[in-house]
């Protein structure tokens, strides 16, 4: 008798059609090896599913905020972008010799905004800016 192998995982995950499910069920009734295998992979599946869900450190700046309109950037995002651009401009003035002329300002802004989203604590100029 050949054993079920991969079908056992799909069976556990509900990823089999009715015909395969019937076949697996019938086989399990007859095969001690596959019953033991099913128990083992089911145990491992539960162990991973039982892992705690971890919170994103720093949270998300947009959590709990109202749904933004499409194409609308929230105030803090504009503020963060302005901050990034200003910082870059200052860098250009203060240390022109160290500027990488190939650097893409858009990329810097995008990276800063992405950073603010996952770590709002780094944005220090959100407070005074008024919304539209």
């Amino acid at each position: 008798m050949s054993h079920l192998g991969d079908a056992l995982g799909a069976y556990l995950d509900g990823e089999v059609d009715d015909a395969e499910r019937s076949g697996v069920t019938a086989h399990l009734a007859e095969c001690e090896v596959c019953r033991a295998e099913l128990g083992d992979v089911s145990w491992a599946r539960s162990a991973v599913r039982g892992l705690p869900v971890l919170d994103l450190p720093g949270g998300l700046a947009v959590r709990g905020s109202r749904r933004p309109r499409r194409g609308f950037r929230p105030v803090w995002a504009w503020a963060a972008s302005a901050f990034a651009v200003t910082a870059l401009a200052l860098g250009l003035v203060i240390a022109p010799g160290q500027v990488d002329t190939a650097f893409d300002i858009g990329t810097l802004v995008d990276r800063h905004v992405a950073r603010v989203v996952v770590d709002p604590g780094i944005s220090t100029i959100r407070g005074p800016v008024n919304g539209p």
């Binding site: 971890l54 947009v62 933004p68 996952v118």
Partner: peptide, 30 residues
């Protein structure tokens, strides 16, 4: 923003479970 709000934590958990490293997972979300 919706993607960040809805999926940020799941992406973090995905990366954390693959790397076992909180800093790498955090950077990956960004």
């Amino acid at each position: 923003e919706e993607v960040a709000r809805v999926h940020g934590r799941t992406i973090y958990n995905f990366a954390y479970r693959l790397t076992g490293n909180a800093d790498d997972a955090h950077d990956l979300v960004q």
